[in-house]
């Protein structure tokens, strides 16, 4: 548990850095780092398959997506960056203190939940469970991927036409 807490603290720190860092590019990299730490926690909490997905899709694919869109847009000139830096620091100044305060206060309070936990599951194999009992979700994934494909066609392909 002690190790878990340390990793969780690292997770929160990584996400804080992601949100607060000045350059967008670092922000994208911070997101990947957050995903990696999350994947480690998942692995420790007996969910290795989901951890693999988190690593490959979130830390890999989505970070590539973010980094490419950031480099495609090339946001500001040097002067603007310095201006925005100040603005950002003012806006996000409070966040670390809020997080620290919230965390300390909440961790000190001991809350006990009076819940009746369900009986442990019978099907323990993720693949079987996914293919036998959650077919509708799998099917939904296929549909949403198809929708994503059309989104790419409409949003990206025709954009190129306009630019020309």
């Amino acid at each position: 548990m002690f190790l878990n807490i340390i990793i969780l603290v690292a997770l929160v720190l990584a996400s804080l850095w992601t949100v607060m860092t000045r350059s967008l590019l670092r922000s994208g990299i911070g997101l990947a780092l957050t995903s990696v730490i999350l994947a480690i926690i998942m692995f420790r909490l007996a969910s290795p398959l989901a951890a693999v997905f988190e690593l490959s899709v979130c830390a890999g694919l989505i970070s590539v997506l973010f980094v490419s869109v950031i480099s495609l847009t090339q946001p500001y000139s040097q002067k603007e960056i310095i201006e925005r830096m100040k603005l950002m620091l003012v806006r996000f100044r409070l966040l670390p203190f809020i997080i620290l305060g919230l965390g300390l206060i909440l961790l000190l309070i001991k809350v006990n939940f009076d819940l009746i936990l369900p009986i442990p599951e019978t099907e323990r194999n993720v693949r079987n469970l996914l293919w036998n009992f959650r077919q509708l979700d799998l099917f939904g994934q296929i549909i949403i991927l198809l929708a994503g494909a059309f989104a790419v066609v409409i949003l990206f392909k025709e954009m190129r036409k306009n630019v020309r």
């Binding site: 979700d137 939904g140 994934q141 989104a151």
Partner: peptide
Amino acid sequence: SLYVFLEIVAV
């Protein structure tokens, strides 16, 4: 599954 289909409609 409800969430999954809501997300399909949303996308």
